[in-house]
Write a protein that binds this DNA or RNA. Structure first.
Lengths: 193, 193
DNA sequence: GTTGTAGGCCAACAAGTGTTGACATCCATG
DNA sequence: CATGGATGTCAACACTTGTTGGCCTACAAC
């Protein structure tokens, strides 16, 4: 996957490692940090709990490995100022639908300090450059990025975590149609004071 | 507090009961359901863990009692169609700032089935009538209420749970200025399809 | 074929959990 | 004063948790 950081060790246990990570992501996404027990994850992966410890050290290490992911935000330079809202909402919706990593991260972040910090890092580091590029006043960039985060994470919360039925039932295109103007306004409109 | 449903028993243990509930709310709000242990709550309240069981049956009962609250949403009939956005945002912000009940509810709802359902009930039951009253097409009321929930809960999530610094630093008036138009649009603007 | 090492399982530990029952103590009522 | 229920403490229960170390097995290198 990432040849530059790891020289492709290709161990014999790679299948097991992957099974553990997959099971961990699913458990963290549905149960949160505390109720996702190592025993349950190991059982899902079809191996012994002690293997989890051997490969990931401890539960924190397992969680860190399970949610080590990149948002792959579009390059800020490639965004046109007028379409940034729609582009962001579409991209984020795709990321949430693709797999359970972000759901796991959000659910854990709600009760776990490390999870919250990781969420903060991801959204801060990735969204801030976009905001800095397109928003009128650079000093407001972080506040505007926070507003965008609030809107995007709020949708994810109601749709993927709390599962409000009307939020779950919204078609992706409808979500984009409603949210894109909001995000666009938070990023590029003049301060409403 | 509520004379119509309970004839003011005024037991000798009322102070203890209140201490337990206060400690429980604080623990649930900061730690979530699983890590808010009965022992820790009892210690905060300065009494024995067994008292919690005696007065609230079990942990679920304690949680239910701790988050039994009313949003006190303004009467839909009293809302003017053009100010509903600002009125809702202002009201919700006040509720979140007032005490930790909603923070506890949100944090627990992220990992606990009962908590999520309670959150769903509160926002569904209280926001839907407002949406039904002010939105143009009654069939879209639930979808529009969900969008409003997403925006409001997203702000609460980033500000009170994940504590993104720029979201925490926003002044209340600024939050209202930014979010009110969004909520207003979700409720009263024509469908953007 | 021997051997070293990685993969895997099993049993156990120490700590912490919700929960329970037995016992002490206060206080209002008879 | 006596008495009974409410208030409170203490110790323990059964269970689950993360984590550890010992042991067995397969496989690749020599």
């Amino acid at each position: 996957m990432n040849q530059s950081t790891s020289p492709a060790p290709s161990r014999r246990s790679d299948a097991t490692r992957k099974a553990i990570l997959d099971a961990a992501r699913e458990r963290f996404a549905t149960d949160g940090y505390d109720r996702a027990t190592i025993r349950a994850i190991a059982k899902d992966a079809g191996i012994d709990p002690s293997m989890v410890m051997r490969y990931y050290g401890n539960k924190e290490g397992l969680f860190a490995a399970a949610v080590a992911i990149d948002l792959h935000l579009p390059d800020p330079a490639s965004l046109t100022r007028d379409d940034v809202g729609r582009a962001l909402v579409t991209h984020f919706l795709g990321m949430w639908e693709k797999n359970e990593v972000l759901t796991a991260l959000l659910r854990v972040g709600a009760t776990n300090q490390a999870g919250a910090e990781r969420m903060r890092g991801i959204f801060g580091d990735q969204l801030l450059p976009v905001a800095r590029r397109v928003c009128p006043d650079p000093e407001q960039a972080s506040a505007r990025a926070a507003l965008v985060s609030a809107q995007l994470l709020g949708l994810a919360l109601t749709r993927y975590v709390l599962r409000f039925p009307p939020a779950v039932d919204l078609a992706p295109e409808e979500v984009v149609a409603w949210l894109a103007p909001t995000v666009q306004r938070y990023l590029t409109a003049p301060h409403p004071a």
